[in-house]
Every structure is written in C-alpha cells, then in structure tokens.
C-alpha cells in the first residue's frame, strides 16, 4: 500500500509588518511547515508503522528553500519526497486552486497511491480546497476535515470522522483510493528524533519541473489573480489598560467587579 502526503511550506507573518507590492515584505516572513500538514504527516507515519508493506511519499510544491520543510516529513518517517518547482511558478506564491491541482495531480497520477493525505488548509492562503479538488481531478473518492481515521485495507474502505461545526462529528465510510483532508487534533504529531533528522539527509528527494510532469506554463496560468493587498483597518474600540502589571490588574479587577464577577 502506498500513502502520499502533501506538505506545504507556509509563511508566517510577524505581529508588526509592512506590505510590499502584492505581499508582505520578505523581512517580516518566517517559513515553516503548515500546521495542518504536520498532522497529515503524523497520520501517514502511523499508517506506515501499522503495516510492514506501506510506502509513504511526500509531495510539495515550492522553491529550493522548501526542502527544509519537506525534510521534516522525511525526518518523521516518510520514505521519500518529491518537490515540484519551475521558474514559471516563481512569480507569486498564490496560485489558484485549479493550477495547484494540475501540478499535484500530475505527481499523484504517476505515483498511484491508495491514500492521499493533505492538511485541511494552509495557514497562509487558507483555501481549504486543494485536497477535495485534487480528488475530483484524479477520480479518487474523498473526505474533508477528517479528525479520526480507521483503515480497513482488506475491504478498501476508510472509516472517518468529519469534524462538523458545533461539536458534532459525521461518521462516513469512504471507498479507496481516496484523498482525506486532515484536521488538527487528529493525533499528536511527534518531534523528529535526531536519528530521524540524520536519516532524512540520505532519503530520496526528487525534483520535478513542469516538463517532467508533462505540463506547460499555460497549465499553471492562474484564473484567479491577486490584484491588491491591504492591512485590515482595526475595528477596535476597546478600552485599553496600560501601565505596570499591578496597575493594569487593579483597573481590570474593578471592571470585572462592576460586571458582577466574583459577587456571591
């Protein structure tokens, strides 16, 4: 059985930042593995540990720098990785969903995994759509926002819980092959061990460009384009307390008492 897990390097923005052109100025960005993907990687690693014939492959779309994050997946137990990149992708990080899916589906179609795990969404662009759109493109079944997964390999069925709103989970059986988008909290992601980090250095990390995937630059032309970015106006009309901790605490305590807090 083969499990493919997609990962994405995301940018996190400092508390104070400035915009530059159609993005955040580079000096205010820090790059990390997308939080949701950490849970997807962990789920893949657990599936690999549960069977001795499970191969795990990680795929990312990103520049050279993103090898740091995909190595994290390798360090946590993923067997090998594919990084997709091309100069034609360098113009902006915000591809539209369809363009992302064309890139990923080319890789997945070649790998033919039984199960694809993605994060529910990426913390930077927040699409929440790529996994399900990927399934549709591949002709795979899918389930979005999965926070519990049980696999019956013999029957070719995954029984999942989908985390709905309001403290309710939907129990669904999904025929394989399938794409599952993984929600945070499904497991407790491990820290990479030193041994894992060392062994990740020698694992295969293949790089594919558009031509390798049988695509041309026009295949990744976005049909949804970014035209403006802005810092949202603060809508805050909060009364702010400032000063040293005791002073602030005294004022806050007075407000709380006035609101009836602590009254027997």
């Amino acid at each position: 059985m083969k499990v493919l897990v997609t990962v994405k390097e995301v940018a996190e923005v400092d508390d104070d930042f400035e915009l530059d052109g159609l993005g955040v100025a580079e000096e205010y960005l820090e790059y990390d593995l997308n939080e949701w993907d950490e849970y997807a990687v962990e789920e893949a690693a657990r599936l690999a540990e549960a069977g001795d014939d499970v191969e795990t492959v990680s795929v990312t779309v990103g520049p050279q720098r993103s090898e740091e994050t995909i190595r994290m997946a390798l360090a946590k137990g993923v067997d090998r990785a594919v990084r997709v990149w091309d100069d034609a992708l360098a113009e902006g990080p915000l591809l539209d969903v369809a363009a992302k899916v064309r890139l990923l589906s080319a890789v997945v179609a070649a790998e033919e995994p039984d199960l694809v795990l993605t994060g529910v969404q990426a913390s930077d662009d927040g699409f929440g759509a790529t996994g399900v759109a990927l399934a549709e493109a591949l002709g795979y079944e899918w389930a979005a926002v999965v926070n519990d997964l049980e696999l019956d390999r013999e029957a070719g069925v995954a029984t999942v819980h989908r985390e709905l709103e309001g403290g309710v989970e939907e129990v669904t059986e999904v025929d394989l092959p399938a794409v599952l988008t993984i929600q945070t909290g499904i497991n407790e992601p491990r820290y990479a061990s030193l041994r894992g980090i060392r062994s990740a250095q020698s694992k295969e990390l293949a790089v594919s460009d558009l031509a390798d995937l049988g695509l041309t630059p026009s295949d990744v032309d976005p049909s949804v384009v970014l035209t403006d970015v802005a810092e949202p106006e603060s809508e805050s009309d909060a009364t702010l307390f400032e000063g040293d901790a005791d002073e602030v605490a005294g004022e806050l305590a007075a407000v709380l008492r006035e609101k009836g807090v602590g009254a027997e």
Partner: peptide, 17 residues
C-alpha cells in the same frame, strides 16, 4: 475579498473568466 495569513492581510482577487 479574501483574508490571508489568518486575518492579518486582506487581499482582493479577480476571476479572469
């Protein structure tokens, strides 16, 4: 209008179709 980076940045996108 879509939010990016949580809600730190507000973006405007245009559909070219």
């Amino acid at each position: 209008t879509r939010e990016l980076y949580g809600s730190k940045v507000e973006s405007t996108v245009r559909v070219e179709a």
